[in-house]
Simulated scan of single mutants.
Amino acid sequence: MSSVQRFYDLTLELISILENTQLDRDVKINKVEILLEKRQQAMAGMAPPYSDTEKDLGTRMISLNAKVTKLMTREKLFIQKDIKVLSVKKESTGKYANPYQSMATDGMFYDERK
């Protein structure tokens, strides 16, 4: 199997994993990392004299890479949203536990006379 064909197959597998919403996020991230590493190795093995089938796969890979980029961006946005929700929840829990912690002491009057 040529490096171009291997890269194409790994790209298709990556897309199927990114589109699968049933997978746990940690499992999905681990699989994506492994596939990206394999794709990097396959890309390094590509050599310039390409056959007609490899050129055809190359043109198809351009659109597949755009799809991978879109899916990875979507996954990144989901993670960012969850991090934001978690930080807001953590902040509100802290305010509930100690409501006077964040009160500003600016404007406090101190009388030195006794």
Rank of each mutant, 00 (worst) to 15 (best):
E13W: 04
E13L: 11
L14F: 02
I15M: 08
I15A: 06
I15K: 09
S16Q: 08
L18V: 04
L18M: 09
L18D: 04
L18C: 06
E19A: 12
E19G: 10
E19P: 08
N20Y: 01
T21A: 09
Q22W: 00
Q22S: 11
L23C: 06
L23I: 04
D24L: 05
D24S: 00
R25M: 11
D26I: 11
D26R: 13
V27P: 08
K28L: 05
N30E: 11
N30L: 10
E33W: 05
E33H: 08
I34F: 01
L35Q: 05
L36Y: 06
L36W: 02
E37I: 10
E37Y: 11
E37A: 14
K38C: 03
R39K: 09
Q40D: 14
Q40A: 13
Q41L: 14
Q41V: 14
A42N: 03
A42R: 00
A42Y: 02
M43R: 12
M43C: 07
G45L: 09
G45E: 13
G45M: 07
G45F: 02
A47G: 13
A47H: 15
A47L: 15
P48D: 03
P48V: 00
P48N: 01
P48F: 02
P49C: 02
P49L: 01
P49V: 05
Y50D: 11
Y50H: 15
Y50C: 10
D52W: 00
T53M: 10
T53G: 02
E54H: 08
E54V: 04
E54Y: 07
K55D: 04
K55N: 08
K55F: 02
K55A: 05
D56H: 14
D56E: 15
L57D: 09
G58A: 10
G58R: 07
G58H: 03
G58Y: 05
G58K: 04
T59P: 00
T59M: 01
R60S: 10
R60Q: 15
M61P: 01
M61N: 03
I62P: 00
I62E: 01
S63V: 09
S63H: 07
N65T: 05
A66K: 14
A66P: 07
K67Q: 12
V68M: 05
V68T: 03
T69I: 04
T69N: 05
K70T: 13
L71H: 00
R74A: 12
R74V: 05
E75H: 07
E75D: 07
K76S: 10
K76D: 07
K76N: 09
L77V: 12
F78M: 14
I79Y: 09
Q80D: 15
Q80A: 13
Q80P: 02
Q80L: 12
K81F: 15
D82L: 03
I83P: 04
K84F: 08
K84V: 07
V85W: 12
L86S: 10
L86D: 06
L86F: 10
S87E: 15
V88T: 14
V88Q: 14
K89V: 09
K90R: 11
E91S: 11
S92M: 13
T93A: 14
T93H: 10
G94Y: 07
K95N: 13
K95Y: 08
Y96T: 10
A97L: 13
N98W: 03
N98S: 11
P99M: 02
Q101W: 07
Q101C: 08
Q101D: 09
